[in-house]
Amino acid sequence: MSKSNPSSSWITQFKPGDRVEVSSDDPGFCGSWFAGTVIRREAKNPNRYVVEYDQLYEDESGEKLLQETLDWIQLRPPPPPPEKKKKVQFKFGDEVEAFHSDGWWEGAITAEHTGGKYNHIPYKTY
């Protein structure tokens, strides 16, 4: 299946109101995912969606949530909620996503500390 025609892909099934995570190729944001809601699918290009972010705003005032028109390949469904009693153990080199600055950042574990704390290094932020 090509990236330009995902007709059989689950990704084309997003509907208004669906929760999604959005990736960005903007400098400083590569490898990050931000939560949002699908507002609509573009009529002229069904591979593009208008999404409103949960925690990113149009300007410094923080009064109006940012909306962007995005290609289908920048969207994914959110993960299932974590199991409440399950404690996850990571080890050096494990691939992870860490929540930082209102988004999830892809990276790897670089150090383990006591108390279930870890160091994480992003894969790419350029």
Rank of each mutant, 00 (worst) to 15 (best):
M1K: 11
S2Y: 14
S2T: 13
S2V: 15
S4V: 08
P6M: 12
P6T: 10
P6F: 09
S7E: 10
S9Y: 12
S9K: 04
W10D: 14
I11V: 15
I11H: 02
T12I: 15
Q13Y: 04
F14G: 01
D18H: 10
R19T: 01
V20T: 09
V20L: 05
V22N: 02
V22P: 01
S23C: 14
S24H: 04
P27I: 01
F29Q: 02
F29M: 00
G31Q: 12
V38C: 12
R40T: 07
R41K: 14
E42V: 03
E42N: 09
K44V: 13
K44N: 14
K44S: 15
N45T: 14
P46V: 11
P46H: 09
N47A: 10
R48Q: 08
R48M: 09
Y49N: 05
V50Y: 02
V51A: 00
E52Y: 06
Y53L: 03
Y53P: 09
Q55K: 10
Q55R: 06
L56V: 12
Y57G: 09
E58A: 10
D59N: 15
E60Q: 13
S61H: 12
G62Q: 03
E63G: 06
E63P: 00
K64W: 08
L65Y: 04
T69C: 10
T69I: 15
L70W: 01
L70H: 02
D71R: 10
D71V: 04
W72A: 13
I73A: 11
I73T: 13
Q74K: 06
L75I: 05
P78V: 08
P80M: 14
P81Y: 04
P81K: 10
P82C: 05
E83L: 12
E83G: 10
E83H: 06
E83S: 08
K85A: 00
K86C: 11
K86V: 15
V88S: 06
F90K: 02
G93K: 14
D94F: 02
V96T: 05
V96S: 03
A98T: 04
S101M: 08
G103E: 04
E106D: 06
A108H: 06
A108E: 12
I109W: 01
I109N: 05
T110K: 06
A111K: 13
A111L: 06
G115R: 08
K117Q: 15
K117L: 15
K117C: 13
Y118H: 06
Y118M: 09
Y118I: 07
Y118C: 08
I121K: 08
I121W: 10
P122L: 12
Y123Q: 00
K124T: 11
